[in-house]
C-alpha cells in the first residue's frame, strides 16, 4: 500500500513539474503547482503510517498555506490579466534585465 501511494505521489509530482516547465498559461501553471503540493501531501499521509501522526498534521498546514497561496496567486494573475489582457506568461517579462 505504501509503495503504491508513494509511486502515485511521485507520478503526480512529476506531472506537476513538467506542467510548470512546459505550459505557458498562468492558470494551468498554477494548477500544476497545486498538483505538486498535493502530491507531497499524499506522500506525507502515506508515510505517517510509518512515522506517526506528524505527517497528517503537516498536511493540514500545507493545505492552509496552499489556500492562502491560491488566493494571493489568483489575485496576481487577475491583476496581470487586467494589465495585459493575457495570461500567457511568454508575454510577461517585466523582470528582464
Amino acid at each position: 500500500m505504501l509503495v503504491e501511494a508513494l509511486a502515485l505521489s511521485a507520478v503526480l509530482f512529476t506531472i506537476g513539474v513538467v506542467g510548470v516547465l512546459t505550459r505557458r498559461n498562468a492558470i494551468i501553471l498554477f494548477m500544476c503547482i497545486e498538483l505538486m503540493l498535493n502530491a507531497v501531501n499524499l506522500s506525507f499521509v502515506a508515510l505517517s503510517t510509518l512515522y506517526g501522526a506528524t505527517g497528517q498534521v503537516f498536511v493540514v498546514f500545507t493545505m492552509t498555506v496552499a489556500a492562502a497561496e491560491a488566493a494571493v496567486g489568483l489575485a496576481i494573475i487577475i491583476a496581470i490579466f487586467r494589465h495585459t489582457r493575457s495570461v500567457n506568461l511568454q508575454n510577461i517579462n517585466l523582470l528582464k534585465g
Partner: peptide
C-alpha cells in the same frame, strides 16, 4: 552580462530552479 541572465520569463526561472 549579469543582466542578460534575467530574461523575465517565468519558464526560465523554473528551469533554473529545477
Amino acid at each position: 552580462m549579469g543582466s542578460q541572465l534575467q530574461t523575465g520569463q517565468v519558464g526560465t526561472y523554473a528551469w533554473v530552479l529545477l
